[in-house]
Design a protein around this nucleic acid. Structure first.
Lengths: 258, 258
DNA sequence: TAATGAAATTGATTCAGATCAAGAACTTGT
DNA sequence: ACAAGTTCTTGATCTGAATCAATTTCATTA
């Protein structure tokens, strides 16, 4: 473990578009205090940072790179819980669960991470209400995503799951862009959506039929409403088309129509 | 909406075995303050308290009765997220998600509920660090359960899911008792475990073969280790048998053996 | 640029769990 | 205690996604 505290300056994550949720609304002092207690470290691809069943030592703030968290059973089957990119935090929820980690965390690329010690997280959450509330917002957000995942696996077809995932990415990257890039390997996304790579691949073929071009990693929408079939009550609010009548299946109109 | 503030006294939930997580560690003043801002109300069976897509107005603390939260899609398929009993809180996570509710909440029996207003929850969480940390603990716990649910649906067979559910209930109700009662209707449990009632029923038949008697709502273990097959790294820590060598499949021993 | 290996696609087959359908067991109320 | 409605169980069938298997495409490195 290389401690190079002096290397960490707030500029690291201010490089990104916006201040990460975890640090929003914190005073400069608080932020400084967090960074002083943390360490910055690089990890190679495919490194396991913590194993399911281990005691969590750190929360991981991703400066650059990709990771995933997953659970695996004795037969070697894996269920991907989250796929993470720069700006995301990981293990921050696990730390407050108490006990050992229910997930394994693994890098998917060379990754630069800020390690925030478990004990510091816990003690600082009690000291700083803003920090506690940031955590609360982040964890509830994860929980919401988990609800979606449960719902998707229980009631949605593979095509619907892929479509919903695409819709989310589309909205994330600004609905004005008609194309976006898959941020992860297809097999990783497939697992996260609870299906095999084969099924994912076949779902892509289906989705082409409703006006979505797929060119390797690049997804291109032929018209702005191509993914509206996959929208739901949670997602409409983030949709810039939602108030436009043109949307063929918008759940906002539906609720009043039906 | 009947406001009968004077009716709410801390004794209501102290009747249960232990102080509910939500109120743990709070000063008497804080607790009083919460109750003064809340209302107590009775609801009949099968009442919808909030619909998916609605703006959450309250967090629900269950004094007595049963509820469930679920998501449903346009085809009428439902995915049960949680099943709740006396002492549980609901919507406390949703309130901090922002936006509309991703879940519908429904009573499963006549139910007595303390309604804590959304706005009060949010403002009090910023005022009182202990309260924020209680929420954090509760929400992370839900999140952990959600992870299990995802994992179970992605990688476990129906029999394994039922077995794991039974193991949890067994541990909850004190591992010394060799029998316990299913707290919910079988079809509700089935849905929560991501299967049809038929599949649940067939899974019960399978489970009988490994030494679990099923007599209506009553589940009786023929030997203390009957459910150990379904244990995992998260659950061992709550298992009173875990340090006993007799456990045939304990993951704690496995990890060192393999 | 060719060679090697990994990832993705495509096809054929299998199988677990959903669905459909009927009957049994349990509740509830009169 | 009986009738009516649930809920649960059991059986038969069907179906969609997993699995198995073979290419194809793409990425990496010699």
């Amino acid at each position: 473990m290389i401690k190079n505290k002096t290397d960490i300056s707030p500029s690291i994550f201010f490089a990104g578009s916006k201040k990460p949720q975890l640090f929003q609304g914190l005073s400069e002092d608080s932020l400084q205090h967090i960074l002083e207690n943390s360490t910055l470290q690089n990890f190679p691809k495919d490194q396991i940072l913590i194993q399911q069943g281990d005691i969590p030592e750190y929360a991981y703030f991703i400066v650059s790179g990709q990771m995933r968290s997953f659970r695996s059973n004795s037969d070697g089957n894996e269920a991907t819980i989250r796929m993470l990119e720069a700006g995301d935090v990981c293990m921050e929820a696990v730390i407050f669960m108490g006990g050992t980690s229910p997930i394994t965390v693994q890098t998917l690329s060379d990754t630069r991470i800020i390690l925030i010690p478990n004990k510091f997280m816990k003690s600082f959450a009690v000291q700083d209400t803003q920090f506690a509330n940031n955590l609360l917002r982040i964890v509830t957000h994860h929980y919401k995503n988990a609800m979606h995942q449960i719902d998707a696996m229980a009631t949605k077809t593979p095509v619907q799951r892929v479509g919903y995932y695409f819709l989310q990415k589309h909205i994330e990257q600004g609905s004005d862009h008609m194309d976006f890039e898959l941020p992860f390997k297809k097999s990783t996304i497939a697992n996260h959506l609870g299906m095999t790579p084969e099924t994912f691949s076949r779902a892509l073929q289906q989705i082409k039929k409703i006006g979505v071009e797929i060119d390797g990693e690049i997804i291109r929408l032929k018209d702005a409403y191509a993914l509206c079939h996959f929208c739901d009550t949670d997602t409409v609010h983030d949709c810039t088309l939602s108030n436009k009548e043109a949307c063929p299946v918008c759940p906002m109109h539906k609720s009043t129509a039906h």
